[in-house]
Design a binder for these strands. Structure first.
Length: 557
RNA sequence: GGGCCUGUAGCCUAGCCUGGAUAGGGCGACAGCCUUCUAAGCUGUAGAUCGCAAGUUCAAAUCUUGCCAGGCCCGCCA
């Protein structure tokens, strides 16, 4: 039952006012003030009465079977829902729906396409780039949970100067994945010291674009090594892709060229004074110094935007429903240019989800300079620490649990921060297992599961009126808020919203855990049943929530 | 020069879209709580002119404008 709606209806009927109360209803800051509240300020003008008076008048008249009481407190009408109704609704719904609880199913029957990660295939991913993958994966999970049939795409940027440099650096050797970063840094330094080497880079690119078989092979070999290495690391974290789309394919299959022709038909394409093909985007009023998107070099070899336009057109054709792309904040303006080009071609651009960079205490991460924290290293450190912590408690550590905890910490540390906020990477806080962390939430789950294991057979129903403690009430109310949290998180593409919710829920559970016993002998059997169902419900919701963030919930830790 | 994002206790962060009741958390500090379901936990204390200044409003962390600081971007990188 949706109490907000019921309250709105009731308030409208009793007050006789033609006002949409639904918008006005809010949740009081403290549960002792009621389950819902209606602030009466907005009514004051219309009724020409003091809001306090209005609250008094209306509160006295509000009556419904599910309503325990309505009392005016200053200008607010505070509403208390009958506990039996409120608790019954929430707990039985969770028990019925189990791991489906919280899904709005609003994507049912719809499809979604999402592109994320799409890192340059030049080295092992650093934690800044990993932010893309982690946010992207959480969005994928949220959308699937909401019922969307979701395809995950990874655009492999295997064309361009950066890769050509790597190919040049490798020469005839076949470097291993682990050695790519060093190779990449070295060749960057080498070219910096000897700029005439750039000529070789462009020559490689030209040959690649014009279909030189051996050059093509050299590119593919090194890119494959890199993509395999990257995919393995992400797979270790439970992140999977349905399709790796190679940028170079857009050269071979002529789609880049074809989109150039389509753009030409718009009349906005022209050659600039140096022979490059540029797209006029004046009409879109983008904050650029010159309103042109450069699509080719003077030798007419393609630049990234052209290949990206071709790719984005393909995605637009493929995307039957939602079309989402996760991009760094550095791509914001560029993406607007891409979107403008799509608009010109009559295609709908994807919805961009932007995130800010992970910084180091002494500045930005740069693969080129080798000043990075590699995701692998972060994961490894976390696993070491998890093993150490488990051994401290249980004597020996099993690999699976250690990884669950370690990766939970890694993921949560990244996902709990709002997308648009910069993160300054700091080993101590990133590797913390206490406080606002993944392991804290996992620990909460393990505690709940431990109670349920010891309880043996689970009760089927209970009298929820017996749950009198403040901590119990708070817990139920948070459990009831899960669907809304999921919906807010999914619809705004903000995993941090769900991360925050799970933290609040875990805190509420731990407070309950400390103030209410379940299995103790002096707990009445009926109360025990009610509490066990509450614990079971909390465990279901925590597990589902963690799953949506891509975090495993170990049964013991 | 222009545009977008961010600014909340010593440090990190939620709330800002959709303005309302004492601005939530966490780390660190200090004081407590394990003979009772896992102390990776819980309770309490101290710590905030919500960057600054104006404006709108009965009411501003939240909306508007200006300024300051940090991040990112603005033609042949991707």
């Amino acid at each position: 039952m949706d109490y907000k709606e019921e309250i709105a209806k009731l308030a409208k009927k009793t007050s006789g006012l033609n006002i949409d109360f639904l918008q006005m209803i809010e949740i009081p800051p403290d549960s002792s003030m009621g389950d819902y509240a209606i602030p009466c300020f907005p009514l004051a003008k219309q009724l020409k009465k003091a809001p306090q008076q209005i609250a008094d008048d209306i509160a006295a008249k509000l009556k419904a079977i599910w309503l325990d009481k309505a009392e005016a407190k200053g200008p607010y009408i505070n509403l208390f829902i009958k506990k039996s109704c409120l608790f019954e609704d929430v707990i039985s719904e969770i028990q019925n729906k189990k791991d489906k609880y919280g899904s709005s199913q609003e994507g049912k029957g719809k499809k979604a396409l999402i592109e994320h990660t799409s890192i340059n295939p030049n080295a092992s991913p650093h934690v800044g780039r990993a932010r893309n993958a982690l946010i992207g994966d959480a969005i994928v999970r949220l959308m699937r949970f909401q019922g969307y049939k979701t395809d995950v795409h990874y655009f492999v940027n295997d064309v361009g100067k950066q890769i050509a440099m790597l190919v040049l650096g490798a020469g005839t050797k076949k470097p291993a994945f682990d050695s790519l970063l060093k190779l990449y840094v070295d060749i960057n330094n080498k070219i910096k010291a000897k700029p005439e080497l750039e000529k070789d880079v462009f020559e490689l690119l030209n040959k690649l674009e014009n279909g030189d078989k051996s050059v093509r092979k050299r590119f593919r070999a090194i890119v494959e090594t890199c993509i395999k290495g990257q995919a393995k690391i992400f797979a270790e974290l439970g992140i999977k892709y349905d399709s790796f789309d190679y940028e170079s394919d857009y050269l071979w299959n002529n789609k880049a060229k074809q989109s150039l022709e389509l753009l030409n038909k718009t009349g906005k394409l022209s050659e600039d004074e140096e022979g490059r093909l540029v797209l006029n985007q004046e009409e879109y009023n983008l904050p650029l110094k010159a309103p042109f998107l450069v699509l080719t070099r003077a030798d007419k070899t393609s630049l990234y935007p052209l290949r990206d336009i071709a790719y984005t057109m393909d995605k637009a054709k493929l995307a039957k429903g939602a079309n989402v792309i996760v991009l760094g904040e550095d791509q914001k303006l560029y993406f607007q240019q891409l979107a403008a080009a799509m608009d010109l071609l009559g295609f709908k651009a994807p919805v961009p989800v932007h995130y800010s960079f992970v910084l180091l205490s002494d500045g930005r991460m740069s693969t080129r300079q080798g000043s990075v924290i590699l995701l692998e290293d972060f994961m490894q450190e976390a696993v070491e620490k998890a093993k150490h912590e488990i051994k401290k408690r249980h004597g020996k550590a099993d690999e699976k649990t250690a990884k669950d905890i370690a990766y939970g910490a890694v993921k949560y540390a990244v996902l709990k921060v709002s997308n648009e906020k910069n993160v300054t990477f700091d080993w101590d806080s990133a590797l913390s297992f206490e406080g606002e962390t993944g392991p804290y939430i996992q620990y909460t789950y393990a505690r709940a599961r431990s109670i349920l294991r010891k309880a043996g057979k689970a009760p089927v129903k209970a009298d929820y009126c017996l749950l009198m403690d403040e901590s119990e009430k708070k817990l139920v109310s948070l459990l009831g808020a899960f669907p809304e949290a999921v919906n807010a998180s999914a619809s705004h593409f903000r995993p941090s919203t769900l991360a925050k919710y799970l933290l609040d829920l875990s805190q509420a559970f731990n407070e309950f855990y400390h103030s209410c016993q379940c299995l103790s002998e002096n707990v009445e059997p009926k109360l025990r049943d009610a509490r066990l169902l509450l614990v079971s419900s909390a465990s279901i919701v925590i597990k589902t929530g963690l799953f949506l963030l891509g975090i495993n919930a170990p049964e013991r830790m």
